[in-house]
Amino acid sequence: MILDVAAVFGLAGAGAVGLGLFGMLANPRPLQKVLAFNLMGSGAFLMFGAVARRAAAPGLGPDPVPHAMVITGLVVSFAATALIVGLLLRLHAVSGSTSLKPQPGPRRAARSTPASKTSERGDAA
């Protein structure tokens, strides 16, 4: 086991995946969940960079295929971020909050029972 460039940044990528995963799962704010998603993605891509570096051929440089995939992945992540930010801003404009907790709206409240407090899912009799 050698701690070369690939290993160092591969480990950093693994760490970023863990941190991003924790952020997505544990952070209550949607905007920071998006940020955590980006961290998770960049961590996975960094691991891909380490993979490419490991496959470096003498005189050729790193394997270009993972690089191309990382570029594609970064663009897809940006599109995802843009879409979520748009959804969040719209939600904020409509409801004044960015909470994702499903709450019985005025229309639903009429139909759902008081017991189903946490969600609009259990509107049973």
């Binding site: 979520i84 959804l87 409509v94 409801s95 499903p102 709206g105 639903r108």
Partner: peptide, 13 residues
């Protein structure tokens, strides 16, 4: 609507 936006956000995330 707010509730479908919430549902969509949860889906995408």
């Amino acid at each position: 609507r707010a509730d479908t936006l919430k549902a969509t956000l949860r889906y995408v995330l």
